[in-house]
């Protein structure tokens, strides 16, 4: 089934922040005609073309496609790490293509959690401190911080590891910490770039199951980039990208 979701929907400007995270927002992310190209010697080299899609709150979307198709670029644009060359991007009803750094960081603090293929934990910090860092930036009080971290450590079964440094953990454990860190600030959406790319299959399954659980039980919107068809099946929607164009948008039952 090919259906490009280009439905117009009522705007929710201004109210976005007050909306409970369990309430499904129809247009959490709205991309219109997103293009991204690099001009080298006057020749435009397109990475993304005419990407138009909506992602609703509570969806678990997997972006798939061959290498160089533009998956990571799309995810970076969704995470506001890169700006599109053309097109509009509204995040929770707010146009974010021209957001200044300060506002963007506000969004990171309150709504977006990142998970990376290479985990990207801070090597000089212990597990505990890595999870604590976003809370510090968000200026969460000491006791609240402690209880949240304790809760996360407990849920992910890494209490015993809390004083270890990242290089003392296995890849799967590091990624668990990475996810715990992303969840600590209680984001509405998690952006994951090949979260299991560096992991063995057993660990990968564990991580994907965790994502599914987070999505189903806590209503966290998840967008992941993946190569693996199997991983994509954990979500409820797959965007197939090839040569910068969305070829397929498949809902999974």
């Amino acid at each position: 089934m090919k259906n490009r979701l280009v439905l117009p929907a009522p705007s929710l400007q201004g109210e976005a922040k007050e909306v409970s995270k369990y309430l499904i927002i129809n247009k959490m992310i709205e991309l219109k005609n997103i293009e991204k190209y690099y001009a080298t010697k006057g020749i435009k080299h397109y990475v993304l073309r005419h990407v138009t899609t909506n992602i609703k709150q509570g969806e678990f979307v997997s972006i798939m496609g061959p290498s160089g198709a533009g998956k990571s670029t799309l995810l970076n644009i969704l995470g506001m790490l890169e700006e599109p060359t053309y097109g509009s991007y509204e995040f929770m009803g707010e146009d974010v293509t021209t957001l200044n750094e300060r506002k963007r960081i506000e969004l990171y603090r309150n709504h977006i959690g990142f998970v990376f293929q290479a985990y990207h934990l801070i090597d000089e910090m212990t597990v505990y401190e890595n999870i604590e860092a976003p809370l510090l930036y968000k200026k969460i009080g000491g006791s609240e911080r402690k209880s949240r971290i304790a809760d996360l450590l407990d849920r992910f079964n890494i209490v015993a590891k809390k004083d270890l440094f990242p290089n003392q953990l296995s890849g799967g454990q590091q990624q668990l910490v990475g996810i715990a860190r992303a969840l600590a600030a209680q984001p509405t959406i998690i952006l994951a770039d090949e979260p299991t790319g560096n992991l063995q299959s057993a660990q990968a399954e564990e991580i994907m199951a965790l994502f599914q659980k987070l999505n189903r039980e806590e209503g966290i919107t998840i967008i992941q980039v993946t190569h693996s068809e199997k991983n994509a099946q954990y979500g409820n929607r797959i965007l197939h990208i090839a040569d910068g164009v969305v070829k397929d948008d498949i809902a999974i039952a």
Binding site: I105, Y137, A185
Partner: peptide, 16 residues
């Protein structure tokens, strides 16, 4: 640089 990147996506301002 990596540390900077991570901290920024975790919500650190540049001046911090």
């Amino acid at each position: 640089a990596k540390e900077v990147g991570i901290k920024k996506v975790m919500g650190a301002y540049r001046f911090q």
